[in-house]
Simulated scan of single mutants.
Amino acid sequence: MRLSKPSRLTLGIVTGVILAAIYLPLLVVVLNSFSTSKSLTWPPPGFTLEWWGRAFTNAGAIQATGTSLLIAVIATAIALVLGTLISLALQRFKFFGREAVNLLVILPIALPGIVTGIALNNFFRTILGVDLALWTVAVAHATFCIVTVFNNVIARLRRMGTNLEEASADLGAGVWTTFRLVTFPQLRSALLAGGLLAFALSFDEIIVTTFTAGEGVTTLPIFIMNNMLRPAQAPIIAVIAVVLIVISIVPIAIAQKLGNGVGEVKGK
């Protein structure tokens, strides 16, 4: 499709405005992390590296980062296992209700976070009768992290077809041998892309975390929310936000590169 010059100009202006609305606030956060002001006034009265030094020696921030990393690793591991198994089941087998199961697997990524959080809070506390803790957060994160793995893996399975797997079976290989030597090598990039996206989603999740974290469980996003309005903490929070931006960009960029042609990349 070819666009006229006025149409291209209009499209370019609209795109530029949208990108500016998204990324200019991020640029302000980056600049504020170097500001000498304790209240993040704009424009910054001066620039300093003091807040970066304080942020990397802040005990609360370090502990919260460790908690977020642990939860993200657990949620990603669960998502990789269950997302792969569900993808194989839905793509390689035909059974009654397959389309319904497919919808139910994808649904958590489409639900508002507050709905998911309330539902899981009630499930853990009322139905299971357990106290909220770190593991409840990890399980809660896994519910939507599974979708990113599922989307990437099932898209790859559809592209792969079954010819090589059938040939392996004809040569006498069992199900596990076929998966290990034929299926898994072709899924590795899709699994890596899905795992990176799942990790990024879990690491900066706050809404579901708020409803499923028990006392004493403070992830990095919750630490940021709790300290944003405290005196002299705003510049440190800006530094942590910049670090989060980098942590979020890197895995998503890698996953997008790996996922080109694998399937649609979706986020929560």
Results as ranks from 00 to 15, higher is better:
F203P: 10
I86G: 01
N32F: 10
T57F: 09
A75F: 10
I18W: 15
P251R: 14
W52P: 12
D170S: 15
I106N: 14
T136R: 15
L19F: 15
M228G: 09
P25N: 02
K5T: 05
L134P: 03
L9R: 12
A255G: 08
P45E: 12
A198M: 05
A64Q: 10
F93R: 14
L82K: 13
L85C: 06
A110Y: 06
L19H: 13
V239Q: 07
G172Q: 01
S87M: 01
L69M: 06
N152D: 01
K268T: 02
T126Y: 11
V137F: 06
N227C: 10
P231V: 10
L104M: 14
R125I: 12
P112L: 00
P108I: 08
A119F: 08
S4W: 02
G174C: 01
P235N: 03
T212E: 07
G66E: 10
V242L: 06
G16N: 04
Q63K: 15
L80S: 04
N152W: 00
V105M: 10
I207R: 12
R188C: 05
R54S: 03
K257C: 00
G53T: 08
A193D: 08
A89T: 04
C145F: 03
S4A: 08
S202K: 07
S248R: 05
V147Q: 04
S39C: 00
E205S: 09
M225F: 15
T162G: 06
F124G: 03
N32H: 13
I127C: 01
V149W: 02
T209P: 13
R159V: 00
L258I: 04
L31W: 02
F124N: 04
A138V: 09
S68H: 09
N163P: 01
L128A: 04
L19Y: 15
F96E: 15
F96W: 15
S87F: 01
L132M: 11
I207G: 10
S4Y: 02
V175G: 01
V17Q: 11
T143W: 05
Q233Y: 12
V17A: 15
I71A: 13
I118S: 14
A72Q: 09
I114R: 08
A173Q: 09
G46F: 05
V81Q: 09
F199V: 00
A234L: 14
T148C: 02
A79K: 03
N102L: 01
Q91W: 10
Q233T: 04
S7F: 12
L134D: 08
